[in-house]
Design a binder for these strands. Sequence first.
DNA 1: CAAACTACGTCAGCCTTGTTGACATTCTAA
DNA 2: TTAGAATGTCAACAAGGCTGACGTAGTTTG
Lengths: 166, 166
Amino acid sequence: MADNASGSDSLLFLTDEQLRKGIEAMFFAYRGFTADPDRILEGLDYGRAHHRAIHFIHRAPGMTVSSLLGILGVTKQSLNRVLRTLFDDGLVEARVGKTDKRERRLHLTDKGAALERALSDAQRARMRAAYRTAGPQAVQGFRTVLEAMMDPEMRRQYQGLREDTP
Amino acid sequence: MADNASGSDSLLFLTDEQLRKGIEAMFFAYRGFTADPDRILEGLDYGRAHHRAIHFIHRAPGMTVSSLLGILGVTKQSLNRVLRTLFDDGLVEARVGKTDKRERRLHLTDKGAALERALSDAQRARMRAAYRTAGPQAVQGFRTVLEAMMDPEMRRQYQGLREDTP
DNA sequence: CAAACTACGTCAGCCTTGTTGACATTCTAA
DNA sequence: TTAGAATGTCAACAAGGCTGACGTAGTTTG
C-alpha cells in the first residue's frame, strides 16, 4: 500500500518506463489522429500538407503567406507547391493586402470551406470519442502535457493566434 | 460561477472549439516531440524512419521483420531500405530464427544501442520536463486520452507488446 | 528620390520515405 | 510433395521536404 504510485506527490510517474510509455503513446496516437483525414484526402490528389494549409487558413482567415510559413515550419517553395494547387482548384483565394499590397491574404472559398468541414468533422469525431471516453479531467491533463511539450515558439502560435486582420 | 466549465459533469469540454484546440495541440506538440531526435539524426545520414526502427527493436529484442512491419505500418520494401543501412552500418544485427529459420530476429548491436540511448535520452528529457511541469494528474489524463485516440489495432500494439522471444 | 529591404513567386535539382508490382529463395506445414 | 509463409530485392514512381539562385513588386529609409 505504501508503495502505491497513485499518490499525487509521487515521482514514480517520471520513471524511464513511464516516459517510454508516453513516447509510444504519442507515436501510436498520432497515427490515429491523422488516419481519418488521410482517408478523405487520398484519392482527391491532396495530402497532409494540403490539410494543414487548409486548416490554418480556416482558423485565421486573411492570414498572410509568411505567417502561414511560420506556423507550418516549412520553406516557401514547399508551401508554394501546395498553395498553387489549392488556388488552381479553387479552394483558396488570395486577396491583395489592404495596407501592404505585397501581401497576399489567404481565404477559403466556399469549396475550400466545404473540404475543411469534411476534414475537421472526421478529425473531431475521433477526438470527441476519445474525449468522451476519457472524461473532462483527462482532457485537461492531455492539453496541459501537450502544451508543455511544445517548443516555446510553437506554444505562442498555439496560444495566441490573432485574427490576423490588423 | 454556475456556468463554470470546470465541473467534472460538464460537457463543455466537447465543444467544437475545445476539439479544435485539442487538434492543434496534437499538431504543435508532435513537432516538439520529434524535434530533439531529429536534430541528432540530421547529419548522421539517418531519418525518423531509422529512429522508429531502432526504437522498436530496442523495445522488443528478437523481434521479427514482419512484426516490426506490423507496428510501423509501412511496406516491407520501405522498411527494408532502412534496415539495410542499419545492418551495413553495424547498428542492427539479424539472427536466424531458432525454430523457424526463415525469420530474422532483430537485435541492436552495442553501437546501435548507443545511438538508441542518445535518441531516447533526448526524447525522454523533453517528456520528463513536460511531465514534471504538468504533474501526475495531468500525465494520467494525457495517457488516457492518447490511448482512446488510437486505432484499436494500434492500441493492442501499445498495450501488449510481448518480449517476442517464444 | 534612390537605395535597401521585404513579401512573394518560381525554376532547378536533390533527398527521404512512402507506394506498387514482379520475382526469387528458403523454409514450414498440411 | 506441394502450397503457402517469411523474407529479400529490383525497378519505377510520388509526395513533400530541402537548398540555392533569381526576379518582381511594393515599402521603408537615408
